[in-house]
Design a binder for these strands. Structure first.
Lengths: 335, 335
DNA sequence: CGATATTTTGGGAACGGTTGCGGAAAATGG
DNA sequence: CCATTTTCCGCAACCGTTCCCAAAATATCG
């Protein structure tokens, strides 16, 4: 019913809690190996588990980092988190992950909750590129480092890790064009998410490079969720415009759009090619499999974790803006 | 750089920290409203945030519950967690979620980590029905309640929440039979996960009820992961047996099997009907949409949270074994 | 107005660890 | 065998709160 403490162990052995503490933290230099063994044995026997709260209070750090993501349903974030947790653990940090669910007010609350729990640093992908910047700044001013990944933020003195979205989008669209596609829809994302705007830029640049007209009617605001992608596609279809390819800014809305197309009996890839940025394993689960720009998720997670722990351990360490190279994987949807 | 404490506030105002503490915890009965106002104002002005570690240490509880799930990639668990977090928050508890990744040794480690962090209770879906039972028992003996959901465990004096798997599976297979299907494959799960065995039972009962032969060759051990489902399907196909429907024990492996079928140009539902237990939104994302038994996820999360907090607050409160009713949703894959 | 009741405040011991400092005991050296 | 160094251990302060108890301030009443 009650947890055993070092005092219990000390009493059991008739020694002081200082010695017990030292032994349990492996201070071989200051406690006789014989005593050490005795202490460790009884600690084990009594089922001792260090009280993290007490240690944190005393040490003035928690050895845990908070992670805030906008969405838990996209495999992208979940995979990132798995990698980050692994890397962070390797570096001696626990993680608390929170999901803002695309709601920047919830994001703000989680941010406060995490600082209140005294996390040593925060890894985050933001809901909205400007809504909470003052809050981010405030947290950083208090000495809690934040590293942003993927859905980053502008004008803050913080480290960031992201993919080369413009370039990869450019290449993806170029691929479509070289396949002979001439009426390429861009299922874009909201203008308040930075990767969305970068991917839109890449799309536009590719069209320009190949002297194809840039037509606003072919740029769909597809939101972030499955049903928004579907809705956008339906709206486009209602206009009756000619098209032969869809370039999506992200996987989730791509699936929505794809479903609408298939329900209308468009054949993929015969009638219309589809591809997306930020594809994950999900692109191989659906039918047909989808060509995608894959993010170097693991590397992103590792770099972000490195940057964060580095800055936790040395607040003066320089901020870095890391842009990683994505990779195009062609599948059935663009045959 | 440093957090402000109640002592800083007390010093600023020339009063004692006791009074500040009382004011900040809203003890209107013991502090003059005037003083209260003054304290709250300066606390706000100085950017005070309560140190949770200190409070936890003092209060001997953390007001947080740990959640352990076997997998983060299945929408089922993610959705459950979202609901549980919401409900738990409503009841005044924070959550720490950990993902064991189908590895019971990792699960054990997370269990230890959570008790070390002194969570007040644990909500979990296990990796393996027997591997860690002594550990669960041990944790519960220490007075930390555990409530199991979905992938439950046998022979423990713990509350559990799950769906009526046998019955729903029975009905789903019955539906298939009534449609005229006579060679129904069961893509089963590992025998160490309880819902998998229950769903298998339901399948078998339906066959018996309708006097269809139960043939071991039609029961595929499909594992838990996408590729395992695909592999199992491929193995079955290699045997060249006749079949007209597939009843899957879970969504993830269903998608794997479905892809194999579609790659082999089986038409769904014309050539073969497909359906699954534990379907989520994902079943509406794929093409064609998939008939499924849907779990009352929200209700499961609410019940589990209620049971857990109840037991945290009153250790003597009786254990409950809640079996919730699932719902069959017919879609394109069984037309 | 003094006595008593009530409200409001302050002092200080916990909670469970860590750690600098000093002293006792043991080891080493001459 | 004594002086000196080294090893090992205990004392006590501290981290930021809460909360019991007593003291102080204020209100109530005959």
């Amino acid at each position: 019913m009650k947890y055993v403490t070092i005092i219990d162990i000390a009493r059991e052995l008739g020694i002081s809690k200082s010695t017990v503490s030292r032994a349990l933290s492996g201070d071989t230099h200051n406690v006789k190996s014989e005593t050490m063994k005795k202490i460790i044995d009884t600690a084990h026997r009594m089922g001792y588990q260090r009280n993290e709260q007490a240690v944190n209070l005393r040490q003035q750090h928690t050895k845990t980092v908070g992670i805030i993501i906008p969405d838990a349903m996209t495999p992208f974030f979940m995979t990132f988190i798995q990698h980050a947790q692994k890397e962070l653990k390797k570096r001696g940090y626990q993680t608390i992950v929170t999901v803002a669910n695309e709601d920047y007010e919830a994001e703000y609350e989680y941010l406060m909750m995490l600082t209140q729990s005294r996390v040593d640093g925060i890894l985050m992908s933001v809901c909205h590129k400007d809504k909470n910047i003052e809050a981010y700044q405030q947290v950083m001013n208090r000495g809690i480092p934040i590293v942003f990944f993927d859905r980053t933020v502008e004008g803050l003195d913080a480290s960031q890790v992201r993919m080369d979205d413009e370039i990869m989008s450019y290449f993806m669209v170029e691929t479509l064009i070289r396949m002979g596609k001439r009426h390429i829809i861009h299922l874009a994302g909201p203008s308040y998410v930075i990767p969305a705007v970068n991917r839109h830029i890449g799309y536009r640049q590719a069209l320009e490079k190949f002297h194809l007209p840039y037509d606003e009617r072919y740029v769909l605001e597809g939101g972030l969720k499955f049903h928004e992608g579907a809705q956008a596609m339906q709206n486009f279809l209602a206009q009756g415009l000619e098209f032969d390819a869809v370039f999506c800014f992200t996987e989730t809305t791509m699936v929505g759009a794809k479903n609408v197309l298939q329900n209308m009996h468009y054949r993929i890839p015969e009638d219309v090619a589809i591809c997306t940025v930020s594809g994950t394993e999900l692109c191989t689960f659906v039918h047909p499999t989808i060509s995608a720009v894959e993010q170097p998720l693991k590397q992103m997670a590792i770099e972000a974790s490195r940057l964060l722990t580095q800055q936790i351990e040395d607040p003066e360490s320089p901020r870095e803006n890391i842009v990683l190279r994505g990779e195009i994987v062609l599948r059935e949807s663009t045959k």
